[in-house]
Amino acid sequence: MKDLVRVGLLGCGGFGSVELWEHRDSKETYAMKCVSKGFIVKMGMQDSIINEKNILLMTNSFFIIKLLECFNGSQTLYFLMEPALGGELYATYNRKGLHGMLGQSEKHTKFYIAGHRTFARNLLLSEGGQLKLTDMGLAKFVVGKTYTTCGTPDYFSPELIASSGHTIAVDWWTLGILLFELMAGHPPFESPTPMETYSKVMRPG
């Protein structure tokens, strides 16, 4: 870590912050996820943090943010990661008004759908506009069915809501939701509350 220099803040949330760091000699830039140990213990997230680290170390995909190194500070855990300097997919869509543009929306949607593999709220963009998946705190490897309920309510499939057990088929459901939202600017079952969203999803026909 002594070889790195902090450049500035990229973003922050309840868990801590993500900062831009630079290597002193090579001038390569990195994203440093800084997580408060006190927050981890307070929220009972010890297993989640370890799980996130292990999953990121096991994955090797162009579409997933790479974990390069971990550092253990006195009050903070540090994850040195590949930077995604293009920002969040949704922020870019909103800023550039890509939703619903004749011809343009379809072109961009096809490009980003090709890289989609999970709930859409964890999608970042590289400097060149390529899709990068981040935030593996609730991820897990599954063989067969799983009964975990997590994610964005707008993207929940019927079997997820019913807690009947779900498979990789939920990826196809969330793909359809993302496609609709990128084209229309809002998810298909959008409602004021999650319970109303679930009701619409489970409605027959």
Score class of each variant (00 low, 15 high):
residue 28 E to R: 13
residue 129 G to K: 06
residue 82 E to K: 01
residue 46 Q to D: 05
residue 194 P to H: 12
residue 205 G to R: 15
residue 185 G to D: 04
residue 71 F to D: 06
residue 75 Q to V: 09
residue 46 Q to S: 10
residue 126 S to T: 15
residue 143 V to D: 06
residue 104 Q to N: 09
residue 118 T to G: 09
residue 186 H to Y: 15
residue 51 N to Y: 03
residue 81 M to F: 08
residue 19 E to R: 11
residue 190 E to L: 13
residue 39 F to Q: 13
residue 18 V to W: 00
residue 106 E to S: 12
residue 117 R to N: 10
residue 166 H to S: 09
residue 119 F to V: 14
residue 83 P to E: 00
residue 20 L to G: 00
residue 149 T to D: 00
residue 179 L to P: 03
residue 60 N to D: 12
residue 26 S to T: 14
residue 189 F to M: 02
residue 64 I to F: 08
residue 121 R to E: 11
residue 200 K to P: 09
residue 121 R to W: 04
residue 145 K to A: 08
residue 67 L to I: 05
residue 147 Y to Q: 08
residue 165 G to R: 07
residue 88 E to W: 01
residue 192 P to A: 12
residue 98 L to F: 12
residue 172 W to E: 07
residue 95 R to M: 05
residue 13 G to K: 13
residue 196 E to A: 14
residue 205 G to M: 12
residue 60 N to P: 02
residue 55 I to Y: 04
residue 49 I to V: 14
residue 94 N to I: 07
residue 104 Q to A: 07
residue 78 Y to M: 00
residue 172 W to V: 15
residue 28 E to G: 05
residue 171 D to H: 07
residue 83 P to H: 02
residue 166 H to W: 04
residue 74 S to Q: 12
residue 152 T to E: 00
residue 204 P to A: 08
residue 7 V to A: 00
residue 44 G to L: 03
residue 164 S to E: 10
residue 101 M to V: 15
residue 172 W to N: 12
residue 27 K to E: 03
residue 42 K to M: 11
residue 50 I to K: 00
residue 29 T to V: 13
residue 3 D to M: 06
residue 154 D to E: 12
residue 87 G to H: 00
residue 97 G to H: 08
residue 91 A to Q: 14
residue 14 G to H: 10
residue 24 R to I: 11
residue 128 G to R: 15
residue 64 I to C: 09
residue 166 H to Y: 07
residue 199 S to C: 12
residue 198 Y to M: 14
residue 22 E to G: 01
residue 49 I to H: 03
residue 73 G to L: 01
residue 166 H to A: 09
residue 17 S to C: 11
residue 192 P to D: 12
residue 119 F to M: 12
residue 19 E to P: 00
residue 151 G to M: 01
residue 67 L to G: 05
residue 51 N to V: 00
residue 85 L to V: 03
residue 25 D to W: 03
residue 191 S to L: 11
residue 194 P to A: 14
residue 41 V to Y: 01
residue 186 H to W: 14
residue 144 G to D: 10
residue 5 V to R: 08
residue 129 G to Q: 05
residue 3 D to N: 09
residue 135 D to A: 09
residue 75 Q to F: 11
residue 73 G to V: 00
residue 108 H to W: 14
